[in-house]
């Protein structure tokens, strides 16, 4: 049963995951945390950090991790395979039949129109992770280090394009010394 669920969830994400790993992140969060409750929001945040620090495609990293948590070794292989399955079908059929320059421009325009919505999707995923589980003692006034880390990391990433792995390591160090 769990295998069927993993297969269905990650095929769906493979088909609807326009715009790269981050766009998939919001889809994965919805299924994994809200729908099936395979992970808590804290575990999800930890998984995203680990997936970002590990080499390879972030979405494959996440699929493997989710699959392992939900269904062990078999689950991890199945989830990664399910995520790739739509791509395999697309490259075999769509690229060979339709992907000339003409329909290519249609796809590019489609993605252009999709981009603002995908950005909203990703932003919502970030917002829903801003909760008491991930932010230590949020709003209590005495310990707002979580908020400080979040704001500083945001500024460093958005304005200075700081390396995400470096930011994760630095905030891990802050956590180690502060808590």
């Amino acid at each position: 049963m769990i295998y069927l669920q993993l297969l269905w969830v990650f095929i769906k994400i493979g088909v609807l995951g326009f715009g790269g790993g981050y766009a998939m992140l919001s889809l994965i969060q919805h299924e994994v945390v809200d729908n099936y409750a395979w992970m808590t929001t804290t575990e999800f945040a930890d998984m995203v950090a680990i997936s970002q620090m590990t080499p390879g495609p972030i979405s494959i990293n996440m699929a493997t991790y989710v699959g392992y948590t939900a269904g062990g070794f078999g689950g991890s292989l199945l989830a990664s395979f399910a995520l790739c399955l739509p791509s395999i079908i697309m490259v075999y059929f769509i690229i060979r039949l339709f992907m000339n320059k003409k329909s290519g421009s249609l796809m590019t325009n489609l993605l252009k129109g999709l981009k603002p919505a995908i950005a909203g999707l990703i932003f919502a995923a970030g917002l829903s992770m801003m909760n008491a589980q991930n932010f230590v003692q949020i709003g209590k006034g005495e310990n707002n280090i979580s908020i400080v880390i979040c704001v500083l990391a945001f500024v460093a990433s958005y304005f200075f394009k700081a390396n995400p792995i470096l930011l994760i390591v630095l905030s891990g160090a802050v956590g180690f010394f502060v808590y």
Partner: peptide, 14 residues
Amino acid sequence: RIFKGIRPCVVALI
């Protein structure tokens, strides 16, 4: 402790 520091950073990175 380390991951308590990392989680808010992950939110920013999203």
